[in-house]
Simulated scan of single mutants.
Amino acid sequence: MQAAPTPVLLSSTPIDLSPWLSALDSVSAAIGDIPALLSLAVEAGRTWPQPGGGRTVVLWELLASVSAIDVAAARVLEPHLDAVAILSQSAQAFPDIRPGAEGAGDEAWGVFAAEAPGTRLEARSAGTGTVISGTKPWCSLAGSLDSAVITANTDDGGRAAFAVSLRHPGVTCEQPEWIARGLREIPSGSVHFEHVPAVPLGGTGWYHSRPGFAWGGMGVAACWLGGAVGVARDFRTGLSAGAEGGREPDQVSLAALGEVDRTLTAVLQYLARVAARMDDGTLGSGAGQSTWSEAQRVRGTVAAAVERVLTLVGSNRGPGPLAFDERYAKRMADLALYVRQHHGARDDAQLGRLALKGDCPW
């Protein structure tokens, strides 16, 4: 019998996570089954905490725990949870234009906010409502989802967020040429919209200026970190199995495991501290400091830790597990692609601009 998944803890105890541990068992049983994972995402949207609501640390622990089981599973659950949070935040800020009292309801949602050269999505007034037309790139699992939060260009030259049904006849999902070896079950392609009704979620600029935008970015980082924990656990398990078979780990392997341990421990503690500050309202409350600068620090710090863990574990385990251990090889490929959502030096340059203006704690 397969052992129950081990949660990734930031500051909670297993007892604190007990109401949600059965969900981790369900995720483990549904690896690779997108409809089943989407059903779990819908259920999680009803019961899991939302960011900034007093239990952010639990939310991030659950996201990290899912990713430690299977990175692609986290890539399914996280966008739906983000959409649920966006709908809730919009309903609280703009009760007159909320998409409906039911929120996300029983539907599976995505969040499509990426931009790309040569594509443009326009939102225009039409009678008493709004319609969107054009193309949106990087829409993961669009053909399997019911609805999405989508950003589009507006008449006033800005961008705004809208709730849109992906089942409308004016929606066409491309079959993407997805050749990636990582996240193979989660293809991302373009979606075309032709006069599709859209419900505004706040006005122009609200989507990117709300604190929840930074919170969502940090939630993705929690998924990256959980994937790195899964890789580290594979490494430790492999060393233990080798020792049991008479092959004791050498100093190089032990040094690598030690560096992995201190790297992950430091980042886990950092996220716990940030989550606590989100919930008590002190995050970004210092003079000249913003929530977005902290989000960039979190994402950059986690991305660097993930890259280091991938390098340490990959170089020490060698080619054998990558060639013959399906779960490990999948995890390595999935995580390497997922963490590329961090833009490396470009994101650091953005953080540098903020630090130059004094938006830093030092």
Rank of each mutant, 00 (worst) to 15 (best):
V191A: 00
H80Y: 12
C360N: 11
S144K: 06
E177H: 06
L59C: 05
G110E: 04
A36G: 04
A163F: 08
L257S: 10
T128Y: 03
G288M: 02
N153P: 00
R308I: 01
Y207K: 00
G318A: 07
D280F: 11
D325I: 01
T154E: 12
P361R: 09
W138A: 08
W292A: 10
I86C: 01
L268S: 08
G32R: 03
V313Q: 02
G103S: 09
A222N: 04
P187Y: 07
R247P: 00
A4T: 12
L166V: 06
T172E: 13
V313C: 04
T151Y: 10
E177T: 06
G245S: 11
T311D: 15
V306H: 10
T128K: 03
A114S: 14
A114E: 09
L239I: 11
A91Q: 14
A152S: 07
P35I: 12
V302D: 02
G288V: 04
E248Q: 13
V306A: 09
G358Y: 11
N153Q: 10
L63K: 08
S165D: 02
A345L: 15
C139K: 03
A305S: 11
A329L: 06
A198C: 01
C223L: 05
A266M: 11
G170I: 05
D250A: 07
A275Q: 07
V199D: 06
R262H: 15
E43T: 15
R233E: 15
A275Y: 13
K330N: 12
A64D: 07
R340I: 01
L38F: 09
A83G: 04
Q289T: 14
P99S: 07
A44S: 15
P211F: 05
L310A: 05
G143R: 04
P187L: 04
L225P: 00
R308W: 02
Q175N: 07
A29Y: 08
L351S: 01
A256V: 12
V309M: 09
G344D: 08
H342L: 03
V71P: 01
S88H: 11
S12Q: 05
E307I: 05
Q92N: 04
F94H: 04
A113S: 14
R233K: 06
I132Y: 13
A266F: 12
L283C: 08
Y270N: 03
A44D: 10
V8F: 10
A255D: 15
S140L: 02
L268T: 06
V131H: 09
D33T: 06
P197C: 00
I97Q: 05
L354W: 04
T128W: 01
V267C: 10
G246R: 09
A180D: 04
S140H: 02
A72Q: 13
Q350H: 13
A272F: 14
R236N: 09
P79Q: 03
G157I: 13
T151A: 05
D155E: 15
A222Q: 02
I132V: 15
R273E: 14
D325S: 06
V274P: 05
R327I: 07
A228K: 05
A114R: 05
P79C: 03
R346L: 14
A74C: 11
R262N: 12
S39E: 14
P169F: 13
R273H: 13
K330A: 15
A91N: 08
S315A: 14
D234Q: 08
L10F: 15
S293E: 15
Y270V: 03
G52Q: 08
Q175S: 10
E194P: 01
F112H: 07
G246C: 07
S144Q: 14
D82C: 14
Q296P: 00
V260R: 06
S253E: 15
R210D: 04
T130N: 00
